[in-house]
């Protein structure tokens, strides 16, 4: 029976390529990672538009209101009725006034489903206007096609 030598018991694997590759992967995922706090919801199917190019910087003080297909509004992840939006906006408004900011300077991002009724979008805008908000951003999904 052959005798085993001491070197053979510990096999030296060259780790360098693996570590290189692993760091490459880490770098890739770090750069790809999206830190933006964009509120998105799978329940909303945004309408497509070729002109809806992604904005460069984040919108200042945004309030996101999402209108679902069935006419209910998703605000801060919660599904609420269209009529209840006013109460939540009143809270937003008082928070802003406490912070010394005008509601008119805030942007209301409207993420409405493409199948939702236009009248409901307009009602949301009207409710916001009554609370003093006047800047709106209608969000659409960027359509690269054609």
């Amino acid at each position: 029976m052959p005798k085993r030598t001491a070197e053979a018991s510990t096999t030296d694997i060259d780790m360098t390529p693996m570590i290189d590759m692993t760091f490459q992967l880490i770098t890739f995922f770090m750069f790809v990672m999206n830190f933006s706090e964009a509120e998105q919801d799978d329940r909303i199917q945004l309408p497509m538009s070729q002109l809806a190019k992604p904005v460069d910087g984040p919108v200042e003080k945004p309030i996101t209101l999402q209108l679902a297909n069935n006419g209910s509004v998703i605000y801060a992840g919660e599904m609420i009725g269209l009529r209840d939006v006013g109460g939540y906006l009143e809270q937003e408004k008082s928070v802003m006034i406490d912070a010394g900011k005008e509601p008119a300077s805030a942007t209301v991002i409207v993420r409405a489903d493409g199948r939702a009724k236009t009248g409901e979008v307009q009602e949301i805008i009207k409710i916001c206007q009554e609370k003093g908000f006047e800047k709106f951003a209608l969000r659409a999904q960027y359509d690269e096609g054609r």
């Binding site: 945004l46 538009s49 002109l51 904005v55 805008i125 006047e134 951003a137 209608l138 659409a140 960027y142």
Partner: peptide, 12 residues
Amino acid sequence: APEGDFDIRMPL
């Protein structure tokens, strides 16, 4: 998915 905005200014 990339998204963009249409800005609308509508004071009451």
